[in-house]
Structure formats: C-alpha cells, structure tokens
Amino acid sequence: MLNYEKKTEGSVLTVILDGKLDTGTAPELTAAVEPETDNFDKIVLDMENLKYISSAGLRLLLSLHKKMASKGGFIIKNVNETNMEILEFTGFADILNIE
C-alpha cells in the first residue's frame, strides 16, 4: 500500500511517500511521477514515511535519476535506516543525490 502527495514549488516537484514502494505499488507511482519529469527542473522524493523500497522501487529511482540528470536533478530525502541500507548495498547511495 502506498499513498503519495505531490507538492509544487515553482519548478520543483516534491512527492511525499507513505507506505511501501514495492512490486505492487511501484507501477502506480511510476505512472504518476515519470510524466512530470518534462514539467519540472527538479524532483524531490520525501521518503520519511516510506517503510521500505524493493527492487521495483529502485528501478523507478534509477529512471528518474537518469531523466533529471541534465536538469536541476533528482533528490531523495529523509531516508530511513531500512531504505538507506538497501541503497547502500545496492550501490544506489553512491549514485543518487540523498539529502
């Protein structure tokens, strides 16, 4: 189960996540966020209330990162311990911009 809320602040889109980013929920979030990459210079994912992220979620993060790299960028913030560990051992922590 994943709930999300989009907040726009000029050319920056912040998406606040609540729940699990897994096989079941990743397609929905992908559909909601990916089209916005053309509309914003910067996309921020707030993961404070994200319980965990699975490999399906990682795929979305990688895709967003690649698309936003030429612009203001893609940022994730408020990463919890579970997710930080997953990002670290998969090497994503070295690639993504984490605040």
Binding site: K20, D22, T23, G24, K51, Y52, S54, S55, I86
Partner: peptide, 9 residues
C-alpha cells in the same frame, strides 16, 4: 517483507 515481496514478485 522486502524479501517476500522480491521472491513473490
């Protein structure tokens, strides 16, 4: 839970 999600997926 992540592990179960991955395996089932």
């Amino acid at each position: 839970e992540v592990a179960v999600d991955e395996i089932m997926s």
